[in-house]
Design a protein around this nucleic acid. Structure first.
Lengths: 232, 232
DNA sequence: ACTGAGCCCCTAACACCGTTAGGGGCGGGT
DNA sequence: ACCCGCCCCTAACGGTGTTAGGGGCTCAGT
């Protein structure tokens, strides 16, 4: 087993055609095509022109492959421009992170329950911490803030991407489903769920961006209260 | 297929021994014993003394069984006492929700990517909305707030429960792993990740409760800013 | 009492999954 | 020439979700 991936090639002059890197890229393509549920060792192997068992030379587990895939997804993340106050920069982090999770199919599910910070994630995190400290947050508050933001964005995208009903899973149009769900809210027994009936329209706001914006701004408001007033 | 579960028993006087309810309870026991990865149709069937194919009489899919399981978990949730200001009540919701996710094995993963609000979830949601409106939040803000809180708590628990390393998955003690991860942070190249090295201690705070408390209080601060000052 | 309908479980099978054991070719170092 | 480590292979094991089809069982209608 290659316990050190960056060791000298030892015997081969030509680098092996299969690398952990190329495996991650293949997994990314399979993910895009078939989704997380359809991502199997055999398909990833076929994607690189190899049989499934061969993957286990480069990777201990499917789990480890998913770690690689995870980092491959994060690799395409980019930090927001370093201009404006801390608030616009943190807002940028949240929106960029959410966009990343939307652009890669099932990305939120891949990251759910996976910490294993690959090198790309570490770079992002360090950068984010840097801006928070520069804005005047204490070390402890900066660290805690990164947890707050990433937890929220991940949870939010996971919720917004979950199909509202079995109908949506079979590709019914979003707006159809939303109005149908709204009607189901309205049809609930008023004596049991008066608020759900009354707020059916608010609860089924189809534009997720406005939801996301509200949530992010509340969190940023809460963070701002940590700073002395002259720092905003 | 029983397309209406609450229809009259029609032909049987004795109720069938297998109900969707008892299936959910069986699934809950299997989940507790074997975790989500070990929860299979065959095991749930065995738990109720039946073969796997029989489940498909009561349930369309494994997915539908998981929806039932989801609601069975939520059934044991209880709203916080209706006393104190809105702030202590919303705080109570967050902590109770997190506790629920901790008390049931893999509960966070079961709920991840699953909206399908069962009856119990609807009740909780209605109650939460009621308190928010009573506190003076507008209808729209109340609805948005429930999304903010549930998204955050779900994302947070998902992150805190993800094993920090492969070592932890094999039952190494938590504190061992934490200090080992901390050392790995400290050992990073300082020129690439100066902030991760400097904040290694803050980032690896082993007490998740203090992390959670920080995050919740920031969110509550942000929400408070929505209210006129005399409402707090 | 007989018949038919519907409920509810069964056996058998299909296609696929993750993972392991063991084998073999190939290329470079001694 | 030999060996050894790399890297892929075939074959198989036990498990998965799901479907097809069958069969008893209990009731309603006649």
């Amino acid at each position: 087993m290659p316990e050190n991936a960056s060791a000298t090639p030892a015997h081969h002059t030509t680098p092996p055609a299969l690398t952990r890197e190329s495996l991650a890229q293949a997994a990314l393509r399979v993910l895009e095509r078939d989704g997380l549920a359809g991502l199997s060792m055999r398909k990833v192997a076929a994607e690189v022109g190899v049989k499934a068992a061969s993957l286990y030379w480069h990777v201990r587990n499917k789990e480890e492959l998913l770690d690689l895939l995870n980092d491959a997804i994060i690799a395409s993340a980019e930090p927001p421009p370093r201009e404006g106050g801390w608030r616009v920069q943190m807002r940028g982090y949240c929106w960029n992170y959410r966009r990343l999770l939307h652009e890669n199919r099932d990305a939120a599910k891949v990251m759910a329950g996976r910490l294993a910070p690959g090198p790309h994630m570490l770079g992002l995190l360090d950068d984010q911490l840097d801006r928070l400290r520069e804005a005047g947050f204490s070390d402890a508050h900066a660290a805690l803030t990164t947890y707050l933001l990433s937890s929220f964005v991940q949870g939010f995208v996971l919720q917004e991407q979950s199909p509202l009903s079995a109908a949506e899973a079979e590709g019914a149009s979003r707006l159809e489903v939303v109005t149908e769900v709204r009607e189901r809210f309205r049809a609930l027994p008023v004596e049991d769920f008066p608020n759900l009936v009354a707020l059916a329209a608010d609860l089924t706001e189809p534009n997720h961006d406005v939801r996301f914006e509200f949530c992010v701004e509340r969190i940023l408001d809460g963070l701002a209260a940590l700073l002395p007033p002259d720092h905003r």
